[in-house]
């Protein structure tokens, strides 16, 4: 059962990601494809019994972040014709060939060499474990994140505020 669900979510995540990247015509549809990927990832976290992470994944990514994306898309009202015809076809073709070749080589190398999986420890991904990790082992990164937010806020105000007095 878990295998089936995992395959389903994994497939959906990949399809959503591809739909987002390949959909250059309609930015709204691309952003909504991203939601599909994010929700599928949330499903995978549930399968890993990481319920808290799953909820955060859906609330923060599928909810907040994509909404911000949509706002920006609507504010800018971007269409394909805004960008004009794009040149550099040769570069793009070369990039595509190189990318496909790289993926192929990686897949060949990967065959049968993925590291072995291990069973999850007890209570993995629950609020208790995440909380413990956040406030003991990862206390410093947790605190530094607040400095990062401060820097981002000050930076955004400096760049965007109409009058700085």
């Amino acid at each position: 059962m878990i295998q089936v669900l995992f395959s389903l979510f994994a497939l959906l995540a990949v399809i959503g990601a591809l739909a987002m990247v390949l959909n250059v015509r309609n930015t709204i549809a691309a952003a909504l494809s991203l939601v599909v990927t994010m929700i599928s990832l949330g499903g995978i976290f549930v399968l890993l019994e990481a319920h808290l992470v799953a909820v955060i994944q859906i609330m923060v990514y599928a909810g907040a972040i994509v909404v911000v994306f949509l706002f920006v898309v609507m504010l800018l009202n971007l269409r394909r014709d805004v960008f004009g015809p794009s040149g550099q076809r040769l570069t793009k073709a070369l990039g595509a060939v190189a990318g496909v070749w790289l993926v192929y080589r990686l897949l060949v190398l990967l065959e049968g060499r993925l590291p072995a999986t291990q069973p999850l420890p007890d209570g993995f991904g629950g609020y208790r474990d995440v909380g413990m990790a956040l406030f003991t082992d990862f206390l410093l990164p947790f605190e530094v994140t607040s400095l990062l937010l401060l820097a981002a806020i000050v930076g955004a105000i400096v760049l965007a505020k109409r009058r700085l007095d």
């Binding site: 530094v144 990062l148 955004a156």
Partner: peptide, 12 residues
Amino acid sequence: LGLELMSIPIYA
């Protein structure tokens, strides 16, 4: 986190 804390102020 150090890398981001270094980069974001410098972007601004």
